[in-house]
Design a protein around this nucleic acid. Sequence first.
DNA 1: TCTGGGGTCCTAGGACCC
DNA 2: TCTGGGGTCCTAGGACCC
Length: 418
Amino acid sequence: MFFLCDASGFYSSAEKVMRPDLRKKPVITLSNNDGCVVAVCPIAKRLGIKKFVPYFQVKDVVEKYGVTVTSSNYELYHSLSTKMMDTIGQFADDVYVYSIDEVFARFNTALSHESWMALGREIRKTVWKEVRLPVGAGGGLTPTLAKAASHAGKRLPGYNGVAVIHSEQERVNILEQMDVTDVWGVGRRLGQKLRTLGINKALQLSQQSPARIRKQFSIILENTVRELNGELRIHWDDVRPDKQQIYSTRTFGTRVTTKAELHKAITGHCESAMRKLRKQRGLTKAITVFASNSPHDDARYYRKSVYHQFAIPTMDTRIVTNAIPAVIDKIYKPGICFYRCGVGLVEILSAANYQADLFAENKDNPKLMNVLDAVNDRYGKSTLQIASKGFTKTHEMKRQFITQRATTRWSDIPTIQC
DNA sequence: TCTGGGGTCCTAGGACCC
DNA sequence: TCTGGGGTCCTAGGACCC
């Protein structure tokens, strides 16, 4: 049995952990640069505020109902996420952390439907008691069914956050009430295509012939169909599979127009992407570097991406950043107000399997990179950095409503006045 | 007054080469 | 001289997830 546990409106609910006075009030949380709404607490949901809409579009509702708005405080969320995952992990034989607020828990035992429901409620209660986060729990024989149950637990009447798909009757009951686009892995576009075939509900998708779905769509959707029928297709190992591509990208707080500023930002993205690469003990053969203005600006849309290959696969940040000036020359265009840029490591191989070329001169310095990573892990990002990133924070992120990092900084510990 | 996220994977199609 | 198939590399952009 799999359970999917996730927090409702995680970022916003995390803010309430430190602000119990807001517990019964609506809270929403914004993305980087305070651009979009990315989390909506259950109370704010009832006001009709949707995720992923630009903040300025909900400002009226925010003011009308006195909704509390916060910027994203990742330090706080990561620390609360860890506590939440640890708490849930104590129940399960095995867990797989899927995202900051979602975890799959695996159980190797057989229980009755009622006992699974009781377990779900127990998890929910315990996480609330220990971390003060509202979580839902959905159980099923496959991860896709667990996801569906979790959806039902939250959206369908009568479940109160916990649902289990154990019997055929329960499976049919829940899937026939679920829109096909609510199935894990079916987005807007696939949904449209399925609808033209008359497949509107999750149950209908589960009744399709897997072979036909594979032919008409993909092996991925075939697996979804099989999982909806209780056939296990999604597996995970103890370790998360290595990424095939790693990206670091961000929008600027204010538009960037000079080559020097663009260079600094891209250097920073090289640093963080390469840090992630070394975490999975990888080497990269090629990168793409890209920058664009905003599609919402009046100016014509400009987007440029440049692919750059290295003679020898590398894990050394310096090798990558040394290639940047030449790449930037191909991207930068005077007069463009750059809004976003980023770096992707797009051809990754594993250092363990890589057979080095005896005759090539490898300039990587793994020891230096180890020191770089160790120092930055211990003393904070950019304690040691590549000089071309610059030492002044010129393109700082807009975070008008940032809260205290109450669980990770001595200086931010909340005080209680009696 | 101005304001529109981030990450990963996949693929169509053009450019280029043989 | 004109015409042609097939492969690889690269870029843009779509699709999905949160």
